[in-house]
Write a protein that binds this DNA or RNA. Structure first.
Length: 152
DNA sequence: GCCAACGTTGGC
DNA sequence: GCCAACGTTGGC
């Protein structure tokens, strides 16, 4: 079992939006970065858990917990010319981008803000805390995962 | 709105 | 295959 962190801009898709979805499940579409895609495609398994992270907003930070309920499959939005994430170089015969399905496990009672997370030396190796980090999906170690769950 | 970081593109 | 230019991300 592995642990992850999923970034999303709440103005685009927030944890409350996820809570309103049928069965609290959504396809994590729109990922157009090869590193992130490879992690979804090659490493994510059903039952893996991940943090839901709000980025580019008033209070960036971890807001809840999700679980992977479906492994990687083609992301439909890449074939749709009207979609934001349309990729003209991709085709249904040879899809370039994939998504996984995640289910909301729990919305935390409070936001674990970036500034709070930075206060803990044992979390300083988290990729999401690194300066200049732009990866929208990052791996989390079991120790980091436990420590953060204990803060929530 | 600024700007650092960094992924991608494309000319050579 | 190199690398400059460009675009995007995302905290502040």
């Amino acid at each position: 079992m592995k642990y992850w962190l999923f970034k999303s801009e709440p103005s685009c898709f927030s944890i409350d939006d996820l809570a309103k979805r049928p069965k609290k499940i959504t396809g994590w579409d729109g990922i157009r970065n090869y590193q992130a895609r490879n992690m979804m495609r090659d490493e994510m398994k059903i039952g893996d858990q991940g943090f839901f992270y709000h980025s580019s907003c008033d209070e960036p930070g971890i807001v809840g917990l999700v679980e992977i309920v479906k492994t990687a499959y083609p992301d439909d939005t890449q074939f749709d010319p009207d979609a934001d994430h349309f990729d003209p170089k991709s085709s249904p015969e040879n899809p370039r981008w994939v998504m996984v399905d995640v289910k909301l496990v729990q919305k935390f009672n409070r936001v674990l803000t970036l500034s709070e997370l930075r206060e803990y030396p044992h979390l300083s190796s988290m990729i999401v805390l690194r300066k200049g980090n732009r990866l929208s999906i990052t791996p989390v170690t079991p120790d980091q995962f436990k420590a953060i769950c204990n803060l929530a």
